[in-house]
Design a protein around this nucleic acid. Structure first.
Length: 121
RNA sequence: AGACAAGGCCGGAUAGCUGCUGCAUCCUUAUAAAGGAUGGAGAGGAAAGUCCGGGCUUUACGGGAACACGGCGCCGGAUAACGUCCGGACAGGCUUAAACCUGAUGGAAAGUGCCACAGAAAACAGACUACCUCUAUUGAGGAAAAGGUGAAAAGGUGCGGUAAGAGCGCACCGCAUCGAUGGUAACAUUGAUGGCAUGGCAAACCCCGCCGGAAGCAAGACCAAAUAGGGGCUGCGUGCUGUAUAGCAGGAGCGUUCCCGCUCUGAGCAGUCCGGGUAGGUUGCUCGAGCCGUUUGGUAACAGACGGCCUAGAUGAAUAGCUAUCCCUCUCUUAUGAGGGGACAGAACCCGGCUUACAGGCUUUGUUUCGGA
RNA sequence: GCGGGUGUAGUUCAAUGGUAGAACGUCAGCCUUCCAAGCUGAAUAUGCCGGUUCGAUCCCGGUCACCCGCU
């Protein structure tokens, strides 16, 4: 399955540090093997997401970039159809994110959504 | 053909579906803004480390110089500049040998300082053992060759010479001074003279010569909400009198204090304007010491001429996800084939270098060995 | 991205270019019926690679790791 471009436009991006801090402080969290998902409600009626990959994961910029791209690709594919609107989502990369199969990555993301009871389908 | 050495270049390829970030053109509603369509572009040789040098920007000073501080240091050239590059000199090193490699390589005869331990002595000299002469216990004188210490011991080897010895004399080598020849120069070769003076360390202080003001795009410039605060104007208003100007009362300051005089203030509210400026946004931001090709000059670094080209510009930060075929490589298998892997590494204002990391491949040059004609 | 700093025993710190020390900690022994305290002794280090020097913790390059500041 491929996500339509119009669906992707429906979800926004988190870009400012205060938003990330708010999600980390107020939101719920679920950890899977390949990623950590944080979620907190916003009052916009729209889903937004952001990515966090720190230098702690890997010192190599190449590795960090690959993790970030894989997470973004998975988010664009899964979130528009599956995530509940009105929430901010933050995906945090882990060591496993680089090596794991892409299909497992999407499964993990769905699993995290389900455990946080934010899956809509 | 082999061995060795030194450079230069490349840094997986193609296609499909779905996406991301700028740019150009067009369309839609209503200029803004948003959305859509089409086209074309989208990481490196080191983008890295931030070790040097510049451009650019702000800042300091009226302008300049010097001191201090920091850096560099054989000679000649290249360059916008450099601690970089090219060519040469000298010293050291690898190799049987050669090609070749490495070098922060000015001055110790301007001055100061240091040279542990050992050793007689570590730098104005001088003498422990030992040597020679006289005296003959001892002491006085001569002399510095031999022993031993040390990283380093006041020229080295040989012959003559002598009581023993010594540059005391001679030859060669080294060193110093003055020349000659070659070279732009560093320097090399060589002649004469001197007769040993000048131990090492300047990546110790320092002297000499040259260079440098400082900070850095988070520099800097522009636009500019909300809130708080500053200033101007207008209106209403003031403890008392007055319609109002104003006067009196009050407060503050000055005249040394009181009296008295002068100046300022007087209570705020509303409206409006101005300036600074935070969040945020725009810009700086990619046409430049630019790249490619041909050609001329030069041993070369490089420079000139002609022709062609436009080649990332993000900002919680794009350049991707998945699949297939080919290429390289590893493992298993008799083979067909199956499976795994793809070096180092990600632009952030831009250039010139240096250093460090790097799977594999292509290619050029030099030296030398072997074979054939 | 830019600017600055630091690396020495297990820890906190010393050390004019000349045998790397101190305190606490660890281990062993003595003392004690046993433990603690005390006494005696031992082990344990200059981040790494080069250069200058007769000789580097120290001086000079490179490299690695860590820390701090600037929105």
């Amino acid at each position: 399955m491929h996500t339509l471009k119009s669906d992707i436009k429906k979800i926004g991006r988190l870009q400012k540090r205060p938003n990330f801090l708010r999600v980390a402080k107020e939101g719920k969290k679920w950890t899977s093997k390949s990623l950590i998902l944080q979620a907190a409600p916003n009052n916009l009626g729209q889903a937004r997401f952001g990515l966090t990959v720190t230098k702690k994961i890997s010192k190599s910029a190449v590795v960090r970039n690959r993790i970030r791209r894989r997470l973004r690709a998975a988010a664009f594919e899964i979130l528009p159809g599956a995530a509940k609107p009105g929430y901010d989502y933050v995906l945090i990369g882990r060591h496993e994110t680089e090596k794991k199969d892409y299909t497992d990555l999407t499964k993990d993301l769905r699993w995290c959504l389900k455990r946080l009871e934010l899956l809509t389908e």
